[in-house]
Design a binder for these strands. Structure first.
Lengths: 302, 302
DNA sequence: GAGGCGCCATCAGGATTTCCGATGGCCCGC
DNA sequence: GCGGGCCATCGGAAATCCTGATGGCGCCTC
């Protein structure tokens, strides 16, 4: 039995599905199947029941899951402690993005990290808030930008800034939306985001406070797609104020005069990895880039 | 990084020597060297200083040793918990011996284990008390017969019986040793055992109580060798009473009339493995074979 | 009832990793 | 200066792991 068996066990347990687990583990479905088979044979215990709908933990599998996680956690803590002992920090930090690189000041971040820790590299992975959180939890990301509230105790986050939001409309709708009220906006078609996006929550809150619901014309997973839909006249959408203003200046969008609350842009990581020197390195550089006091863990964990 | 890297790390740390570590790990010296190299590269931390006399832990290596042991302990506990969940116990138990198979009732033990746990096999490894304890600590043995006192808290042991001991002499020395006192015995040549053998302690205690020391004619590592030396007229030796009496009946030995304290024959295992179902299986069978109440761990650990 | 889809297990072949025997380099002791 | 002990490296072999393809089974829909 090796650690990769345990990683596979835990991932399959969480996904309940070999193919999805293989994607998370960056390997193939037959490889994952073989890992589980080998582990079950070595332990002499069936860990999963195979069903047409996927893999279901057996009672024994459920009981063993905690021990598997503890073993992986101990190994992770060992590696983390080793990083704290490196003469010079070495490693790669995978960061999930949720909006455009310029807004996230990624060039400045890259420079700050490269200067402070020459042997640390960043791996920037496109995504959105709703995808980044599960990826964080799954260990696929080391840190991630997210927007909105965060109340999961397993996730630690720090506010970088407040994102001002605005309602964007196609320029052709300028006159009929000169002074709209909320019910009127609800009558318009909307470009939705996924429900796990903070912008969706803001939109929902807007209409719920006036007891009405917006009409969904289309759903866009990415901000670029949403912007394209709005510019193309498909419907209204919620976007960052600076993006809407830039679009308005360039004649591509119209900013609807409707005040919206802001959402917090945050950087997040797993609480248990907060003390990891690699995470600390990135948090330190982010604090520097955004002029924010990101409270660092004491060196006691080192 | 996988568990075998950590096992190698810990073993090399304990041995301070790649070749000895490779023997304990049942692999080759180049393989062990490669494990350490790979681990150091992955962690970005030198774990050992290479010296002409062997491998010496660096400061970082010393700090990381605990974490490595914890990870291995967690993995071991996981496997142990899995064994407790097996429908039928499966596995191999490596038992260190320290005297002859007949005295240790190994045939009865084998039968008892086979009956109670058909899929558990025993692997009986010749040895002696002094070799068995380090082998236990090193994970090379799962359980071990040992003789004498045991005060290491990391080792758990149960008394099976008291070994009566006697002083054996060559038959030709019968008359001159008809009624010897201790100083007289000290004047004779002796066949020593290794210092980590319980018989050695008994011999030492005998003479120290009379402020004298025995003369060492030869040192024998194994009981067979010691018996051969005594029978061959090389010197006196301490042996089990039943063996001396059998030798006397067969005209091969003379029992010197000198009372000795007995030593306890014990079965031992690592304290942390006491709850292991495989260990429990063997302890249960030993209790049955020796008619001894070996207090078993509650099922709470299962 | 049949066909298609989803899911896991297996297979054969290729790729990668690991191991091993041989050997070299360095240091130390005689 | 030489021999021995110890670790690192090398080349080749062995073992392990992965992958694409495919099959079997169950379920769902038509």
């Amino acid at each position: 039995m090796e650690l990769y068996h345990l990683r596979t066990f835990v991932t399959v347990a969480e996904e309940g599905h070999l193919t999805r687990a293989s994607e998370r583990l960056f390997t193939s479905q037959p490889a994952v199947s073989a890992h589980i088979k080998a582990l079950e044979e070595e332990l002499g215990v069936p860990l999963f029941d195979r069903t047409p709908r996927g893999m279901q933990l057996t009672a024994a599998g459920k009981q063993l899951l905690t021990g598997a996680r503890q073993t992986l956690a101990a190994a992770s803590a060992f590696q983390q402690q080793a990083r704290g002992l490196q003469d010079e920090l070495i490693g790669t930090v995978r960061i999930g993005l949720n909006t455009d690189a310029r807004f996230l000041r990624l060039i400045a971040l890259q420079s700050a990290v490269a200067e402070a820790h020459p042997q640390v590299s960043l791996e920037l992975m496109a995504g959105y808030t709703g995808a980044n959180l599960p990826a964080l939890r799954a260990g696929k990301l080391d840190a991630s930008f997210i927007s909105g509230e965060m109340d999961d105790p397993a996730i630690r986050s720090w506010i970088l800034c407040e994102e001002e939001l605005a309602v964007a409309a196609p320029t052709a709708w300028r006159e009929r939306l000169a002074a709209p009220d909320v019910p009127m906006l609800a009558e318009q078609p909307w470009v939705f985001t996924t429900e796990d996006c903070s912008h969706y929550g803001v939109m929902r809150a807007l209409f719920e406070s006036h007891c009405c619901s917006p009409r969904k014309a289309v759903l866009a997973h990415q901000e670029d797609a949403l912007a394209a839909m709005v510019e193309g006249g498909i419907g209204l959408g919620i976007m960052r104020l600076d993006v809407v203003e830039a679009g308005e200046r360039e004649g591509r969008l119209h900013r609807v005069p409707m005040p919206l609350p802001s959402v917090s842009l945050r950087i997040a990581c797993l609480a248990q990895r907060e003390g990891d020197p690699l995470i600390q390195a990135v948090l330190g550089s982010l604090g520097q880039v955004w002029g924010v006091d990101i409270v660092e863990r004491s060196a006691a964990s080192a």
